[in-house]
Design a protein around this nucleic acid. Structure first.
Length: 511
RNA sequence: CGGGAUGUAGCUCAGGGCGUAGAGCAUCCGGUUUGGGACCGGAGGGUCGCAGGUUCAAAUCCUGUCAUCCCGACCA
């Protein structure tokens, strides 16, 4: 039986495959509100795991959590010129605070107009900066290191579940430092936290690097990102970290007295990752049978499906499953016995689609023989055939933690191999670049052939020269992703300007 | 905001003025099966996106409107 658990394969139509996983994997669905998603329990469970793991790492690096308001006075946003420019076109604005009933119809009460409109936060630099300005007086108050888990709203024209939604969830870290070196060190430290988090927890290999000036966060002196390669070759910016220089400090009067008594502006940073990571996990690990979750973020790591027959023996079977669950839980494994009143086969395939790392199926013969039959989601099939493993129960329990670790590392290795083998380094001219990626595809380019990333030498052009390059790339639907931090000494001339190259940059189609 | 398309059952869609609205899958019931995505029979479920118009008669034609999707524009 060559039937797959999803109705569409990656090969057939990658975007539809993505949507199928989001839907059939019980991750999320569209909501009655345009561009906003409903995150379903299974998807939310993944986000909770991401939060727990990342939050611990953020705290380990000395940051404390806090919470700022959802609304930001419009005047705050207006303080930093580039910031306004960057976000003006995508801000939701609250202008009134009351409705009224007019002839049986609810209308906005014109008398309830706000003195100053409120912006639904697209990011919190300005409102947090306002607090920093009050909190920071002395060099003894620095560095100030805070983080918040929150929702933000950006009124994007086109949305895709998890990847780009009008409202999304994220964490945003905001820090203030006495000098540039300390702030830059913070920016890079958090980038590294993101890199290791993505690789160790999400099993998603990334390239950490510096964004070109045209891709910087509005108001930043420097932006760094981690970029992940999806299974269609496109890049996904999975996290960013910004060195904001003294822009926001100057705009918001964030100053401190240094040890010599002089009044000095702080250097600030901000950094964030969002629910977009879940989209990245789906497109990194999913296969034609659905999602494959790395054990570290799977809400349930082992799911036990009793093969019930609606007969008296069922009670014993359930007992066997429950005691197995108890043993696995005692070993610290998130385990579930699926006792839902649906057909066992249906349950199995639902867990396959959801990406539970290990699916155990217990039938009467297993129970009497003291065995466990299970499937590994990372190696579900041999060809078309589903691989079913059977082990003595005691062995299975003893080896379960190691099995989960192995699944985690298998998923990482697969993705790492794909990333490493799909960064092309032999492109020597813009023409070759054009030929490699082909014309900016018409119509349904999304389903086009796999194209990896291209690494080219460049001379770090800025201003108009860089804009011209970005435009040329844009015509090919390409963007400069980043200049990897870890890179060998560059040789040769810049692919774009012909000037001596200063470093390598990665070029790719992107989400 | 421009260009294109689509709104009919929970889902995927058929029907396109002949008057009492269809299929497959899903759901529920009964039966037969079952070391694994089973089969047979039956049942429930829709004011055909919304509003107006034309008509004896509108899911069907016309106008408007809303929503969704695709392509642009937009997007740390």
């Amino acid at each position: 039986m060559s039937k797959r658990a999803l109705s569409v394969t990656r090969e057939q139509n990658f975007p539809e495959w993505y949507q199928a996983i989001v839907r059939d994997g019980d991750m999320a669905e569209t909501s009655p509100v345009r561009g906003c998603m409903i995150i379903k329990p299974w998807g939310w469970g993944v986000w909770e795991r991401i939060q727990a793991e990342l939050d611990a790492r953020i705290k380990d690096t000395g940051h404390d959590n806090c919470y700022f308001p959802l609304f930001i006075p419009m005047s705050f946003i207006a303080k930093e010129a580039e910031h306004v420019e960057g976000f003006a076109k995508e801000m939701a604005v609250v202008t009134h605070h009351r409705l009224k009933n007019e002839g049986g119809k609810l209308v906005v009460d014109p008398d309830a107009k706000l003195e100053e409109p409120l912006i639904v936060r697209p990011t919190s630099e300005t409102i947090i900066g306002d607090a920093f300005q009050r909190w920071i007086k002395s060099y003894r108050d620095l560095p100030l290191l805070v983080n918040q888990w929150a929702n933000v709203v950006r009124w994007e024209m086109r949305t895709r579940l998890f990847l780009r939604t009008t409202e999304f969830l994220w964490q945003e870290g905001h820090t203030a430092h006495a000098d540039r070196d300390d702030a830059v060190a913070e920016t890079l430290k958090m980038l590294e936290v993101y890199r290791t988090f993505a690789e160790d927890v999400l099993a998603m290999p990334v390239v950490a690097g510096e964004k070109p000036p045209n891709e910087r966060f509005p108001g930043a002196d420097n932006t760094y990102s981690i970029e992940a390669m999806m299974q269609d070759g496109k890049a996904l910016q999975a996290g960013t970290s910004h060195y904001l220089g003294t822009h926001f400090a100057e705009a918001q009067n964030i100053q401190f007295q240094n040890a010599q008594g002089a009044l000095t502006h702080c250097h600030t940073t901000s950094w964030g990752v969002s629910t977009r990571l879940i989209g990245g996990v789906i497109m990194t690990h999913g296969d034609d049978d659905g999602l494959r979750l790395p054990p570290m973020i799977a809400p349930r790591q082992i799911v036990i499906v009793p093969m019930l027959r609606e007969k008296p023996e069922d009670a014993e079977l359930i007992e066997y499953c429950k005691s197995l669950e108890k043993e696995l839980k005692a070993a610290g494994i998130r385990t579930l016995v699926d006792l839902k009143l649906t057909k066992s086969a249906e349950k199995r395939w639902n867990w396959v689609r959801r990406g539970a790392p290990v699916i155990v199926e217990i039938g009467g013969r297993d129970a009497t023989g003291g065995n466990v039959t299970f499937m590994r989601r990372d190696r579900l099939r041999d060809g078309d055939k589903v691989i079913s493993n059977t082990k003595p129960r005691a062995d299975f329990v003893a080896e379960a933690p190691a099995l989960l670790k192995e699944i985690q590392s298998t998923l990482y290795s697969e993705a790492k191999a794909r990333l490493d083998s799909n960064i092309i380094t032999n492109i020597k001219s813009f023409k070759e670049l054009e030929e490699y990626f082909g014309p900016a595809a018409e119509g349904d380019d999304e389903a086009g052939a796999f194209k990896g990333w291209v690494r080219v030498p460049w001379s770090r052009p800025e201003g108009a020269a860089l804009d011209a390059i970005a435009d040329k790339l844009k015509a090919l639907k390409l963007t400069i992703r980043n200049a990897p931090l870890a890179q060998e000494a560059v040789a040769g001339a810049c692919l774009f300007t012909g000037e001596p190259a200063k470093e390598y940059v990665l070029i790719a189609r992107a989400y």
